[in-house]
Write a protein that binds this DNA or RNA. Structure first.
Lengths: 194, 194
DNA sequence: CGCGACGTTGATTTGCCTCAACGATTGTGG
DNA sequence: CCACAATCGTTGAGGCAAATCAACGTCGCG
């Protein structure tokens, strides 16, 4: 029982680790705290860590030349977050990952993950399975992006992720859905009036 | 040297197989031909196979109640295609996968993949790496979905995938970009006039 | 207390869709 | 091998969903 136990439980839902493997795994982890509005990842820095959220809420987004931002992902308890493109190729990040609330994370760095793969190959399976799910998740998001109206996307989001919808600022939700905050506000009024 | 060698080469770019492993792998594969317009996957049937494209061109799409279709993916030589959500959970498919050209595929079924994971764990790594890349690919697509105008998405698509753009019917490209075929046609005119 | 971040509201504009009609191209059966 | 139908792409008129712009309320925090 230690500070890494939330992640150990999560891992054990997918693969079985013996005590020795658990210890080894834990030796590769680190615990990080982040205050609201702090950045976990910034553009041009290589994303060194995959982070598992123990507590709190974060978002990954990019900004364009006009200063608009587009959020790619929210992460709350029991989710992973990273600039995945930057992480897997160890190239400079393009995303910002920012804490929406004070948050606590368990992190594993790139080299540790490679070590883990060679020392405890079960982790190949673990991350394969997780990534496969995330892939399917993104496919669904693409479908809603191209097939739904703004109102439908919003309704879909709040019914699918009520806990996230309740915790994040409205403008981040708008930037996740790909609409303006003004329009989201109008949608919300329309829905509350009916 | 056999009909599976294109896939073996592809696999060998990621992991090293000895002769015995190659043989075992090949014993799990099958070669399939598909004529233009034929379906590889249909809704309500479980997607049994992952298919590697040796030759040809296919698309995965869904249709909504209004008969609109939304294409999720194109696949040409050296790509994989499946209804991934259906495949990994072995639940009924929601997608249609259709041959755009006469095509040749190398397929591996779900049970074979599970066997492969247990007999040759290197394949865990292989599919992990591939899936990670696909994930990053989808993330980029989401960004263009929510950040670009139709014209920008179109230009982006034809510069990134000129070979695909040249091979697929316009209406499939429109349904990939999330716009109507009429509007795509107008964009094309606009671009050719300037 | 006052400023900045966040959300709301209304007026106006625009990107894209809808609908309808019409070429062009393909392919298929007689 | 032609004829005709189906499939695919184009064009234009009109309409709507969502963006833009601008102004204002409100809340939380330094």
């Amino acid at each position: 029982m230690n500070e890494f136990s939330p992640l150990l439980q999560y891992v054990n839902r997918h693969i079985q680790l013996n005590e020795q493997e658990e210890e080894y795994f834990c030796s590769l982890l680190r615990y990080t705290r982040l205050r609201k509005k702090q950045y976990l990842i910034q553009p041009d820095y290589v994303c060194k860590y995959k982070s598992y959220v123990v507590k709190g809420c974060l978002r990954a987004f990019i900004t364009d030349d006009k200063g608009e931002d587009y959020t790619l992902q929210f992460a709350v308890e029991d989710w992973w977050i990273a600039d995945f493109g930057s992480f897997i190729n160890q190239v400079p990040a393009t995303m910002i990952v920012e804490a929406i609330e004070d948050s606590e994370l368990i992190q594993i760095d790139y080299n540790a993950v490679q070590l883990l793969y060679s020392q405890v190959p079960k982790f190949e399976r673990f991350f394969r399975v997780i990534t496969e799910r995330s892939y399917v998740f993104l496919q669904k998001r693409i479908i809603s992006n191209i097939s739904m109206t703004a109102e439908e996307k919003y309704r879909d989001f709040i019914t699918r992720y009520p806990n996230i919808a309740a915790r994040v600022p409205q403008y981040t939700m708008a930037s996740y859905l790909g609409i303006t905050t003004e329009f989201l506000s109008k949608i919300r009024r329309r829905l509350s009036e009916s």
